[in-house]
Simulated scan of single mutants.
Amino acid sequence: MRKVFLITGCIILAGGLVALDYWQGYNQGLVSEQLVQDNIEIQQLLNEKTQLEEASQQATTEEKTPVENTEMSAAVLCFNSLNQSFYTEVYPVVKEKVDSGIFVLENGKLPGDDDYISTQDFSELIDSGWVCAISLERDADDALWKSNIEQYLTALNDRVSAKPAVYYLSSGSCTEADAEILKELGFETVLCHEQTAAKTVGELNVVQLLGYNDTDVAGSISSSEGNCGLEIWVSWDKSVRTRVRYTSAALQNLLNNSTITLTGLDDMLNGEPVSVSRTPEERIAQIDQRLDELYH
């Protein structure tokens, strides 16, 4: 009997060691990935600082005070896969820097479902000016897709008295036929991942979603002629490689990015490009502050 217990204990210990080794390797992978992102950002900031210092030195020689007119890249934040951690961990950080954004109810889930955003948190987000979008699997049959959306909207209204005006397409672009159906259902804006310069399709506004932690996300936004959103998956599924995983460090990098202005959906759809004037010294001070954060 003692021999049996001994063997069983050895098996359990071996299993525990394997699990520990896997977990340590997984954490090391996350750390390595974040270090790569940080190093890329550090190098970009150092290059920009060098250019600004050279411009400042030249201006001093010529007895001029240069002013850099910079057009800021505007985008709206879009959060997907809303488990409870969104409201308890992510939203408190975001609301310090951003007045509003978009959150997506996907795959027929409703506020108050198990391990999902609660009805109270949902209502507080709406009261704070955030915009709710919904997403259901696109059925090949138009009539069935429309019927599924209608049923979901009824269930959502019964649960939290809400009628969203934004629809999220999980893949592809929004066709004219899609836009017509969504317009009939009361939607005004569609979110999609297809690269497009168009700001509308049919009678709907279009917002193109980008990965929020891309190394050149500011360049992608500024070069786009359309409306842009930055998508963050709060609960990440490793089996879907196109989804951009949430990490607190990447989100902080985005919130502290001085070349992107994060705006609400209505402001982005109706507003003009944001422009700021600053001296090289002011920008260098911003860079030094960010470098200090990255180094520590």
Rank of each mutant, 00 (worst) to 15 (best):
K183F: 10
V104C: 03
S224R: 02
A155N: 13
T200Y: 09
N157T: 03
E41A: 07
Q84Y: 06
W130A: 02
V207W: 06
D142A: 12
L230Y: 10
K183N: 14
S239D: 04
E33A: 13
E62R: 05
Y116F: 15
V94A: 00
G271Y: 05
I40H: 05
V190G: 13
L46M: 08
T88P: 04
E137G: 13
E282L: 07
A162V: 01
C132G: 04
T200N: 10
Q151P: 07
F79C: 01
C228W: 09
N205I: 00
N47G: 12
L169F: 13
T215F: 01
Y22T: 02
Q37Y: 08
Q195G: 05
H193S: 10
V160Y: 10
H296Y: 07
L204Q: 03
V93K: 13
K97F: 12
N213D: 10
Q57P: 02
Q84H: 10
R245H: 00
V240K: 15
E180T: 11
E203D: 11
L209Q: 07
E225T: 06
R2K: 00
S56R: 14
K163W: 04
W233I: 01
S173W: 03
W145T: 12
V207N: 05
N69C: 08
T70F: 14
V166N: 09
S147C: 08
D127I: 08
V98H: 10
Q57F: 13
L30H: 01
K109A: 06
K199P: 00
G211D: 07
C10P: 01
F103G: 01
A250W: 00
Q37W: 02
Q51C: 02
V36W: 05
I232L: 01
I284C: 10
P66Y: 04
Q84N: 12
A14E: 03
I149T: 05
C228L: 11
E106N: 05
S147L: 12
S147A: 15
G129R: 09
V98E: 03
T50Y: 11
V244H: 11
T8N: 09
S123P: 02
E281K: 15
T70E: 14
R159K: 14
L20C: 12
Y246F: 13
V276M: 08
L185M: 11
S173E: 12
P66D: 09
V240A: 15
W130G: 03
T154Q: 10
T70S: 07
V274F: 06
A249G: 04
D214G: 10
I7Q: 05
A140I: 09
T8P: 04
C78G: 00
R243F: 05
R138C: 05
A75H: 09
E225A: 10
T119L: 02
D178L: 02
I126M: 12
I134Q: 09
E225I: 06
T200P: 01
I232S: 00
E96R: 14
L291K: 05
V276F: 01
L20Q: 12
T263E: 13
S222C: 08
A218C: 03
E272W: 15
V274L: 14
N270M: 03
K146W: 01
G25C: 00
E272I: 14
H193C: 03
E71N: 08
I7C: 01
T196G: 06
Y295M: 07
L191K: 06
T196C: 06
T279Q: 12
